[in-house]
Design a protein around this nucleic acid. Sequence first.
RNA 1: GCGGCUAUGGCGAAGUGGUUAACGCACCAGAUUGUGGCUCUGGCAUGCGUGGGUUCGAUUCCCACUAGUCGCCCCA
Length: 423
Amino acid sequence: MAFQIPRGTQDILPGEAEKWQYIEQMARDICRRYNYKEIRTPIFEHTELFLRGVGDTTDIVQKEMYTFEDRGGRSITLRPEGTASVVRSFVENKMYGDPNQPIKLYYVGPMFRYERPQAGRFRQFVQFGVEALGSNDPAIDAEVIALAMEIYQALGLKKLKLVINSLGDKESRIAHREALVNHFKGRIHEFCEDCQTRLEKNPLRILDCKKDRDHELMATAPSIIDYLNDESRHYFDKVQMYLTKLGVEFEVDPRLVRGLDYYNHTAFEIMSNAEGFGAITTLCGGGRYNGLVQEIGGPETPGIGFALSIERLLAALEAEGITLPVAQGIDCYVVALGEKAKDESVVIVDKLRKAGIAAEKDYQDRKVKAQFKAADRLQAKYVAIIGDEELEKNVINVKDMATGEQVEVSLDSFTEYLREKLV
RNA sequence: GCGGCUAUGGCGAAGUGGUUAACGCACCAGAUUGUGGCUCUGGCAUGCGUGGGUUCGAUUCCCACUAGUCGCCCCA
């Protein structure tokens, strides 16, 4: 093959693209009802934004960002996620000055990560996300979570699990981190190499380790929940209270963590329980990031949001055997016989189309039989047959493909006739 | 960045170190010179991911590359 699609990317072909449209439309509609407005930001940003937003401490940034130099020598990065850009725009456009607080935004679009493709992971993938900036009310946390759940439920997914946790505020996090380090420090040599580096870099991640899962120190490790100060505890309680009031079922998982410093308080993930879903079960991740706006150069502004991948959403739908109600067939296929009729058929389909009817005709010079087959393949509800006989009488034969019934209709009233039939 | 497995027509899938590379689906044509979904008949890969190498000869053996897939690392 001469050309191949770049690694980790995919073509979304007709048949598949309709599902994307359906999902995006559903998400947009839910956002409209929750009063979240769309924001469109560029697909690339100055690398510095992500270094700041995501944190350059980890080697992830070096390893997994799609970074390159443009012709002007600037370091550019294809956005790996949506939040940094949204916050940048929030600050740059001074949305913090808008009287309509909180600012509630959503976005859909491609994101890029330079990683080895595997199940549910691509180099270009599409995320849908929302961000609510400017409110410190636990009710907005619950709202954001409920919105995410509603998207999945509206699409018919049943096998969902919502887990939430609180990372507390800075004070709580520091206390917890210290406790973790003390807990593992003495016997860290009993753990895997990764965990030994994690102790320094990110002790929270030790709790996630698959290899050392059964180590006795794991079960007794200090839980963040026990280190929440009164304010954080209270905040978390309120979030749970609101979720319960909203009828959103959840599970508290103290092991659910977020690596970056500006994350605090609420963290949540929505996972799929569906069988045969593979190693990756997380569909959606979100949390509160009260430090981020300031980090990006804006005034101290609280924020919370989530992002979900459409690819994984589709995989979850597949795993649950859900078929989206996407329209496929056309309304009418016009079969033409003979030169004159063929010329006339061009005008006939045009009339149908302008009347709002999805119509198609043959362009391959096929015989009648083949034209019918084509109509069948296109799942045409009706086939209209026009030939010399019909032309002479100024009529057209209309066949209902489901029943096989065929009636003769005057050419003048044909469009109207079909329109009534299709209602 | 690391490891396992894989790569044959539009799709699925057999196969062999040596004349014409099974079969199924789809598609096209005919049986039915103006009517689909069923049936029958016929057609449809100068080539077996790409590039090298071994060999008298490779789709089949070896190497590299590319891609897919599963997993590791990590997951903002």
